[in-house]
Design a binder for these strands. Structure first.
Length: 401
DNA sequence: TTAGGGGTAGCT
DNA sequence: AGCTACCCCTAA
């Protein structure tokens, strides 16, 4: 595969949302096995898509395991370990809908997930097997025998933690991946086209220097390693720091996308048309790049930000047939941030401390002192819904500030 | 990672 | 108004 094809593949793997094929399947179909970074992109893309649809299932565990293998040569990230642990628990918890452990498929799930799947991890001494995971394993196995334990776990809000940790992991992964080569090219192209002074100013803003703009060849592979703010990051900034983002920044983001669309249209269209005519099974043919004006009216699931470039750009490029590429949706699915108002801080609904939690906290302090992290780790079940800061604050209340 | 100051929201 | 839970920030 040539450089351009790989760029396109990379872009498609990263960008296609609501896909008809999994990014990982597409990756396999394209036979890109020697590109670990592309594979990471595909895995992270699939995980993001699952999360956007609220699917925290055993396929997610597969993806997390693949991700861990892909990062075998480096230290496994804490976020990956936590995400795996909580996802595994969540996958088990969904089989705890009956009143008692013996009904339903809890036993089977336990064997499948904790016996087989995690058993394999143990054999290959995976970093994913953390003390936290082992504690959960023993708790879950205990739940088979003890109805109290079963009930306790059954009523715990694991899903919230699983999603939070997955969200955190994905954020880190996308940041590590940086922006795609095509985006990089589009940005350079755009910056060159603009007034040079403005470009330099803009470049600074996005962590670019003037030299890098002119440096085409080297940036492709090396820049990717850097923490380049991608268009995703622009979106993220729009979401999280909306008030501070000026109109010029939003315009730049939009124009970048438009540039990208023009470039990719030229690159993708011929091969796609061919692919459709031949009806071959390369996988790329199933990626939707045909014009779909009706989709512009699709319902916006976010906070209704007027960020989507579909409407504005179509008028500026009137009469032109353009491929449909979805505007990236924000990855923040955490309930913490979902309804966050623009200015005032969002507060989670207040959950009063139960006597059990308070007792666990007292015991924890007795045992570990004010090591909130250890206290939480030592009792993940009771403190499932509490952060270390929560523990600290509660203790502050208990002893009277 | 933790401590602590200072603040807000929601409830009674 | 007072209390509790939670948030944000900074310093160590």
């Amino acid at each position: 595969m040539g450089v351009i094809e790989i760029w396109v593949a990379e872009f498609v793997l990263r960008r296609h949302q609501n896909p008809r094929v999994y990014a990982t399947s597409l990756f396999s179909a394209l036979k890109l096995d020697d590109c670990p970074k592309l594979k990471t992109s595909a895995v992270v893309r699939d995980m993001s898509n699952s999360l956007i649809r609220g699917q925290v299932d055993e396929r997610m565990l597969d993806l997390l395991e693949v991700l861990e293998k892909l990062q075998e040569d480096s230290v496994t990230m804490e976020s990956l370990k936590s995400a795996y642990c909580w996802t595994a628990v969540e996958c088990t918890l969904r089989f705890m809908w009956p009143e008692t452990a013996s009904d339903g498929f809890f036993g089977e799930a336990l064997e499948r997930i904790w016996g087989k799947r995690i058993g394999i991890l143990k054999v290959r001494e995976s970093d994913l097997v953390t003390p936290e995971l082992l504690k959960w394993e023993s708790d879950l196995k205990m739940a088979v025998e003890e109805p109290d334990m079963y009930q306790k776990i059954r009523e715990t809000n694991i899903r919230y933690n699983a999603i939070s940790h997955l969200n955190q992991l994905l954020k880190e992964q996308w940041a590590l991946l940086g922006c795609s080569s095509l985006e990089l090219e589009a940005r350079k192209w755009f910056l060159k086209r603009k007034d040079p002074n403005a470009a330099r100013e803009r470049g600074k803003h996005y962590g670019y220097s003037g030299e890098e703009v002119n440096d085409v060849e080297d940036t492709v592979n090396e820049q990717e390693q850097e923490r380049e703010p991608s268009l995703d990051t622009v979106n993220e900034q729009e979401q999280e720091h909306e008030p501070s983002l000026d109109k010029a920044d939003i315009t730049v983001a939009r124009e970048l996308k438009d540039c990208l669309l023009e470039i990719i249209q030229g690159l993708v269209e011929p091969s796609t048309r061919q692919g459709q005519e031949n009806n071959n099974a390369t996988g790329l043919s199933s990626v939707d790049v045909s014009p779909q004006p009706d989709r512009a009216n699709r319902t916006e699931t976010g906070r209704g930000r007027a960020e989507d470039s579909q409407g504005t750009s179509s008028s500026s490029l009137s009469g032109r047939v353009r491929p449909y590429l979805p505007t990236p949706k924000p990855l923040n699915v955490s309930s913490l941030k979902k309804d966050k108002p623009a200015k005032t801080g969002f507060k989670r609904p207040v959950r009063h401390w139960t006597p059990e939690e308070v007792q666990a906290l007292r015991d924890g302090v007795k045992e570990y002192g004010k090591s909130w992290k250890d206290i939480k780790k030592s009792n993940p079940l009771v403190f499932a819904a509490r952060t270390e800061v929560n523990l600290k604050d509660k203790w502050r209340n208990l002893i009277g500030r």
